[in-house]
Amino acid sequence: MSDTPSNLLQGTLDLLILKSLALEQLHGLGISRRIGQITNGAFDVKPGSLFPALHRMEQAGWLESSWGESENKRRARYYKLTRAGTKQLGIERDQWNRISLAIAAALEAKS
């Protein structure tokens, strides 16, 4: 699961995918590129992790997919957030904030 440059923390990938789809629907490569963009290149998601995650999230009901045309008139499968997906984004964001706060506090604690 090494998605260089940084390893993805368990569960982070879902959050990033949800976040990347918050604005508009995207195809697989688009999602990968958007994640790279919003994380300033910190994460480069490879298809080996991306597609299993997409299919899993679609089965969980957070995403919906349909065939569409890319900007270059190519056929591609587009994913967009469902209502449940939007809700899940909120949940995961809160969770992440709590965790990062806790970790930050832990790191700053004087022993």
Binding site: G28, L29, H55, R75, R77
Partner: peptide, 17 residues
């Protein structure tokens, strides 16, 4: 079939890029 199409499309998009 859908999975296969999707991955081929991904490869095409990447090649194009």
């Amino acid at each position: 079939q859908e999975l296969s199409d999707e991955l081929l499309a991904y490869a095409d998009l990447l090649t194009e890029e």
